[in-house]
Amino acid sequence: MSSHEHHTEHGVASPEITFAHEPAPNTKRIWKTFWILLVLTIAELALGLSHYAFHLEGFLLLFVKGAMIILSLCKAVYIVSIFMHLGDEIRNMRLTVLVPLLLFIWFILAFLWDGVAWRNLRNRYDKPATEQQAVPHDQHKPKAD
């Protein structure tokens, strides 16, 4: 089994592959990433609870939700880049995984746009059915008696 001995020198599956996971000799980078993820999660929770505690509305609520989305994307970058080691792979590999994800930009915009259009249409033409479901707070101003 001489070929196996050759592999063990690299600790990787094939001699033609030079990449190996965990480039760092110690676990410092792993724990640093853990603390970053923990702090980001706590920040997300603080924002999530803030719109409950302070009953945020309108632009401020949208701002808080946007901030939570950005924080989640940051967490995703750390998990993929450090824990899954995509950041240590060569460019060919990184782009093969990341470029298809650009489809999500269209995917999210198109579908949410459609959802909003659906709501607007129903509110305009399908009044009794929607009122039975629920009445939005901002559109239900009580008339002066």
């Binding site: 999530g48 994800l101 995917f107 579908f111 949410l112 959802g115 479901q133 009445v135």
Partner: peptide, 29 residues
């Protein structure tokens, strides 16, 4: 994993589509 990303993406985006199409949605808090 890339293909699974699109599976989960499709599920979450369909959830988002239905959610924004409603006038009321429960507050997770």
């Amino acid at each position: 994993l890339l293909s699974d990303t699109f599976t989960f993406g499709a599920l979450l985006i369909s959830y988002g589509t239905i959610r924004v199409s409603q006038n009321y949605w429960p507050d997770p808090n």
